[in-house]
Design a protein around this nucleic acid. Structure first.
Lengths: 344, 344
DNA sequence: ACATCATATTTGAACGTTCATATTATTGTA
DNA sequence: TACAATAATATGAACGTTCAAATATGATGT
């Protein structure tokens, strides 16, 4: 039999298109009796409203866009996998779908927004990798495009909690602070920080957490703050300099750096038994080699992003509580004992 | 100014809707003169045909679906990231978009197919993780849904190259064979294989490659074939048994297994200098610890999957050469010297 | 019994595109 | 020049939905 449509269903039921449409979109307008009759007919016929018809009329597609960032390290790819999965699942639960797109640059990404809004009527976007002077958020705000960002708006002047747009982020600083405190409790007094060059929001935030913990414990930080590009080799190099400066433990801005640092410390300070390097992101690499690492609640972040976005898109009429527009999640420290480096 | 549509453009140009539609979809039908005139008007106005209007009429959405598999290991997540990125990029180039969806099981996935075909008019699907007795391919074939699989159809009776559906796969057996040969060349005569329990297509294929190389070199395999569930710990355990059986080198079905095996071999056979463990997938974990690994050309695979799918969807009228319906790609062996395990 | 009002349902139109067909312009041929 | 054949363009209808407005139904009060 042919696919059911509003018209075909209406005819077979002896009601009008609009009544069925109302049963689906505004049930309260329909008399309970007919509503039930229609609902069972819908179920029985397997009728599902056509996205195209809807979209044409309402100019909404129930599709959310997200950019696939160019694969750089690969080490964080697993995080993306988890993030995407959680986003997709949450979106699906709310009746939305996720559409992927590629862009070479932020400018290109904005071009894609225009294109996707224009041709595909995307309802909103999920942003990742926010940074200082992000053009994208400005453009989206200017054009009244709904979106939520994973990553707070980095700005030296504005308070992110007063931002005009929704965001969810993980408090990286709290993570490194916690990590540093753990090392202090373990008796370390000279703890280095191995992070990215100053200028990246997330990187500086993580550095600040380490610095807070050190200051709080009245420990010196001089010479213990190393800036290095991400990567295992750079991590080893940085660790070498830290050991020269007297460090006995290292907190890192990434698992890549931490992996290099761990190997180097193992070599330079073989007498130490406890884990003295703590990474960030709790990637499979960290799990594989038994490296302690700051774990981001990335699934929670994804769910909240979808919640805040869909809540906004439904105009707040989705029944659920209004999700917070700005949310800073606490990371947790995954503690491990070195694995591959010691005996198994 | 309001968004351009076929009608608004037609009016301002003094031609009919259909002429503009033809310029876009069947340029040869339009007189070169008008064609140019219309084309420049399209560019100047920034007109882009509405997906919804098109979809409603043609019942095609220019959207391809792909399932987000549940995150299991995480170690392979980076592979998925690369795969998704390449898929998205290739699809975008051909004018298609990628839609993500989640499913708990194969049966659920089939349910999603129905839903997505029905409501969103998805044009086709990309399948991953094919296995013995895969219901999904059967369903898609039965329902004439275009799709291409990453992973050959595993069957003990049928030749995959006569399969009714398109697929792209990486010749894992060739990879492990190559890896084993390398170890033989290096003088090893007792090389173990550390793989998954018999029954998974890809796993058995990789095991077969090792076996081929061993037989070809007339080396014994008795006791050197270990079946273990995926994971670092299982890898270490398996390696222990292999060393007991006299193995001096190990070829693995995954980087997780390899990582465990490498650590164990380092411990049990510390005198060896050269890399004696070879992993599979060339994940960031392998790169991070300097583990040799069989690398899948996953971007090539993704591009070909899109090529074969879009070629089919366009009915072969897309100009390009007909891509092969069944394609087995050769992996390459990424050789590394142990990194974290030795000195840096 | 009748007007009033709220509730429930229906109708016509519109969203932007392409298909199938109809019309008009152009070319070739006798 | 006329006539057919073909190329180029135009028209009406349809895809399936929701919006806005119109109509029908029922309840309430006088």
């Amino acid at each position: 039999m042919a696919k059911a449509t509003l018209v075909s269903l209406a005819e077979s039921l002896g009601v009008s298109r609009q009544t069925i449409s109302n049963v689906i979109n505004a049930p309260h307008r329909v008399k309970p009796e007919t509503r039930l009759r229609v609902q069972s007919a819908i179920e029985q016929s397997g009728y599902r409203p056509s996205a195209a018809g809807r979209q044409l009329r309402t100019r909404r597609s129930m599709n959310l866009g997200i950019r696939m960032m160019p694969v750089v390290d690969g080490i964080n790819g697993s995080i993306l996998d988890r993030f995407l999965h959680a986003l997709t699942e949450a979106a699906q639960q709310d009746g939305y779908r996720l559409t992927l797109f590629c862009a070479d640059s932020d400018a290109d990404e904005i071009g894609q927004y225009e294109e996707l809004l224009n041709v595909a009527d995307l309802d909103g976007f999920v942003l990742t990798g926010t940074h200082y002077g992000d053009d994208r958020t400005a453009w989206l705000l200017d054009n009244d495009v709904p979106f939520a960002a994973f990553g707070r708006p980095w700005s030296s002047i504005e308070d992110p909690f007063t931002s005009r747009h929704a965001w969810v982020d993980v408090d990286g600083g709290a993570g490194t602070e916690q990590a540093t405190r753990l090392l202090i409790e373990q008796g370390h007094t000279s703890i280095g920080f191995l992070g990215w060059p100053v200028g990246s929001g997330a990187g500086d935030d993580r550095r600040a957490g380490w610095r807070r913990a050190m200051h709080h414990a009245r420990l010196a930080t001089k010479g213990l703050d190393i800036q290095a590009d991400d990567g295992v080799a750079a991590g080893a190099l940085g660790a070498e300099r830290l050991v020269e400066a007297g460090a006995t433990a290292v907190v890192c801005a990434s698992d890549s750096l931490a992996l290099g640092a761990a190997a180097k410390l193992r070599q330079l300070l073989p007498e130490q038994k406890t884990p003295v390097v703590i990474g960030f992101d709790d990637t499979p690499v960290a799990a594989a080699v038994g490296l302690s690492s700051v774990a981001q609640p990335i699934e929670d972040a994804a769910r909240h992003i979808i919640a805040v976005l869909t809540h906004h898109l439904s105009g707040g009429r989705d029944g659920g509580d209004k999700p917070r527009k700005h949310l800073l999640l606490e990371p947790t420290l995954t503690q491990r004992t070195p694995y591959s480096f010691s005996s198994i």
